[in-house]
Design a protein around this nucleic acid. Structure first.
Lengths: 142, 142
DNA sequence: CATTGACTTGGAGTGCGCTCGAACTCGTAG
DNA sequence: CTACGAGTTCGAGCGCACTCCAAGTCAATG
């Protein structure tokens, strides 16, 4: 698979794939006879996992640490696990934080809904009064 | 309250407070006779809410829109509410996304735990074999 | 009256994560 | 043979959200 296809299938741009290789997030890719990168489908699994780390806010610095341990291979499992466990805690904390903010947002939105309702009620009241006055005029004119 | 105290109480740096005022996130602060900013405690509520928006990933661009509507005052409630409702949806989506990633992390971590357990078992087995061999040698030497 | 420390402004610099452009090389189709 | 499309490298540029610096002002204190 060449870089264009990998780009389409991974959702990253070719630019980004080269950038990730440059900084070491993606392993140096094998080249074909004309020095073009030639990827194995298995890279997609790794890119997908990197995407999870990114989505959950892991900085590239730390992804690099993980990628380096992975390149080192067997014997680094305990450290990789520790890294992920720590990250998981941060993600959990982030979720809790977002949920707290959601409550604040709910309250704020409810506040605006109240204001809008009061304005509607006020307008309806105004209309009622005008109608009553119009009715009174009609009644008087009879 | 001067900028230093506000910085301490809000958790923002004085630099950031000035920056926020410059870009319009914070209203232009009244100055005392020596042109120093003099804040009312009520600004803390606003800064706190801005913090919530920031924490939930709202870009400054959009906070500025909200801040501008707020400055405009009455009559902009419906639009402010809409803005917050849309943002709330994005935050909810983000929480869902993070939770999906947490499941992936859990799986990955469990995978490493398995590998480590297998290694331990293997080591324990090795030790047992060595002990058995040692026992056999002892028995044979009798 | 000199020093200190907290403030002022305008503008430059930083770190992150890409993103893009220029100039070039290939392999294939017409 | 040439034109194309997709790839290559290297380095510059960008958007975001700060963060910091230099040079100056001011009020209070020793």
């Amino acid at each position: 698979m060449k870089i264009g296809e990998l780009a389409r299938r991974s959702g990253l741009s070719a630019h980004t794939i080269r950038y990730y290789e440059r900084i070491g997030l993606l392993p140096y890719a094998d080249r074909d006879r004309s020095r073009q990168r030639d990827y194995d489908a298995s890279i997609l699994t790794w890119i997908d996992f990197l995407g999870r780390l990114k989505t959950t806010g892991m900085p590239i610095r730390e992804m690099l640490r993980y990628a380096a341990l992975r390149e080192e291979g067997a014997g680094t499992e305990a450290e990789r696990r520790l890294l992920l466990e720590r990250h998981r805690e941060q993600v959990r904390a982030r979720v809790a934080e977002l949920e707290a903010c959601l409550l604040v947002l709910d309250t704020k939105i409810a506040g605006y809904a109240d204001i809008e309702k009061r304005i509607e009620d006020h307008d309806a009241h105004q209309r009622t009064r005008r109608n009553q006055q119009a009715g009174a005029r009609q009644a008087g004119s009879r």
